[in-house]
Structures are given as C-alpha cells and as structure tokens.
C-alpha cells in the first residue's frame, strides 16, 4: 500500500533550521510566504531581500536567490533588482525597526512609486535582535529596555501606523494588516500574502502585508501568553483589515 504525503515542507524553504525564539511567529509567516511562492510556482524567479533584525537570516531560510539589505533599505535594494530584472519576483521581509523607523523613507517612496515589489512587514512592537528596545510601533505604556518606565508619548511619541499612512499613496495595489496567532488568522494571512504577491505579478503595483507578530522573549511572556497579549493589546491599537485591494478576487 502506497503511503500518501499529506503535508510537507514547502520547496521554497531550505532545510536550514529556523533560528527564531520559541513561540515567535516569524516562523509561521516564513512558512506562509514559502507556501505562496510554491502555489504560485514562482520560487525559481523569486529574489528574497532580507533585512537587518531578527529576520536577518531570512536569506538562509527561503530557498530562492537572496540578499541582505542594509538596515531599512530593503525596498531600495528590491527596487534596484526589479528595475534591472522586471521579469523576476522580488520581495522584502522587514521588521518594524527596519521598515517603520530607519527605513521610513524607502518604504514610503517604494509604495508611492507603485514599485512592483512585495513587502512582508512584521510588526511585533519591539526591537528583537538588539535586545528589546522601543520600536516605533511600541505601544504607549509598554516597557522596553529603552522605555523602562513605559513608552511615554510626551517623550517618545506615538505608535506609528505605517499601513494607515501608506494606504494613502496611489502606488499601492494591495495592503492588509493580519495576524498569525490563531489557525483561522493564519489562513487569512496566507490569502493576504498571496494577493500581495499577485499585485506584483500582475504588474498592478506595490503590495504589502503587515503581520502583527509576537515576541515572547522581549515581551517577557511565555509563548501562549504572548499569543493572547497580541489580541488584547496589539489588535486594539492596530486594527486588522484590508486597506487597499486592486487585485480583485482570485480566479
């Protein structure tokens, strides 16, 4: 009797073991991106542009041609690749420090140009790699290693809503905020990610998915509590939804 494979690792992931902390949702999002690349059959024409931050090793995990951009510059690097080779599929994978602080100019202008690239934006409200400092997306009152008394708007300003800002730029073809802390949400997130790639593949414009993500290590919570914390604190500040959809329904 032949055995049937009902689940396997996507081809678009390498055999390299993830280096992420237990309970971190980077791994889920990596897998979703890889599944989408597989389903769209574009692994062999895709270039991954990794960031600086926890996902600096993304170039090792995705089984595609890949590079690592300087901190915040992934959309510019992706632009360079895409302008040189419009036939390739190019995506950036960036955290909130990378994209929403140091890389604000690059993401804004890539979106506004309608650059035909895709961006996966991981928002976990904290700097992970450098040790739990305040991110531009850190919630008010939230304690980090550089806001030991809690984020104070008077001193530190407010959590930045990148998607709400970017949705106003005309070059955006698909933009959604999702989360990946429940199985249902994971399925919804995958649909969004697929559309963000289709926005590029169909030549419509810039596609981005903001993924609300957990950081148990730097939040000081166990993995399950972190999933719950995300719902209780992140979602009220960063409401889920589809902000722009020029891709339309698939098939």
């Amino acid at each position: 009797m032949a055995m049937q494979i009902i689940q396997k690792k996507p081809e678009s992931l390498t055999d390299k073991e993830f280096t992420y902390c237990p309970g971190c949702t980077h791994g889920i999002t990596h897998r979703l991106v890889a599944e989408v690349l597989d389903e769209l059959g574009i692994r062999e024409k895709t270039v991954t542009v990794g960031p600086v931050g926890c996902s600096v090793f993304a170039y090792q995990f995705f089984n595609t041609d890949a590079t690592v951009a300087a901190h915040g510059r992934a959309p510019a690097v992706a632009t360079g690749i895409k302008r040189a080779r419009p036939d390739l599929c190019v995506f950036t994978y960036q955290g909130d420090g990378d994209l929403a602080a140091i890389g604000t100019a690059e993401i804004m202008h890539a979106a506004n140009r309608g650059e035909k690239i895709t961006t996966i934006f991981i928002n976990n409200a904290i700097y992970g790699m450098t040790g739990g400092q305040m991110a531009p997306t850190t919630l008010l009152g939230m304690k980090t290693t550089t806001t030991p008394y809690g984020r104070n708007s008077n001193n530190d300003g407010y959590p930045i809503h990148v998607s709400e800002i970017i949705k106003e730029t005309k070059g955006v073809a698909y933009l959604a905020r999702v989360k990946v802390n429940t199985p249902q949400d994971v399925q919804k997130a995958k649909k969004a990610i697929k559309k963000a790639f289709l926005a590029q593949l169909k030549g419509i414009g810039f596609g981005m998915v903001e993924v609300l993500s957990t950081c148990p290590t730097n939040w000081g919570l166990d993995p399950v509590a972190a999933l719950k914390w995300l719902d209780e604190h992140m979602v009220p500040e960063y409401p889920l939804g589809v902000f722009v959809d020029k891709v339309g329904d698939e098939q």
């Binding site: 270039v47 542009v49 590079t67 951009a69 300087a70 510059r73 510019a76 690097v77 992706a78 632009t79 360079g80 690749i81 895409k82 302008r83 040189a84 080779r85 390739l88 100019a105 690059e106 804004m108 202008h109």
Partner: peptide, 23 residues
Amino acid sequence: SFLQTESEVATINMVYGAACTGR
C-alpha cells in the same frame, strides 16, 4: 531604466540591488 530616487541613501541601495543581478 532611469530612476530619480528619494535620497542618495536610497540611490546607493538601488545600485546595490541592480548590481546583484549582474547588470
């Protein structure tokens, strides 16, 4: 392809990206 960029910071990183393709 010509692109006027948003800054020299973006410029050099676009050059980096384009150079990655070998062109």
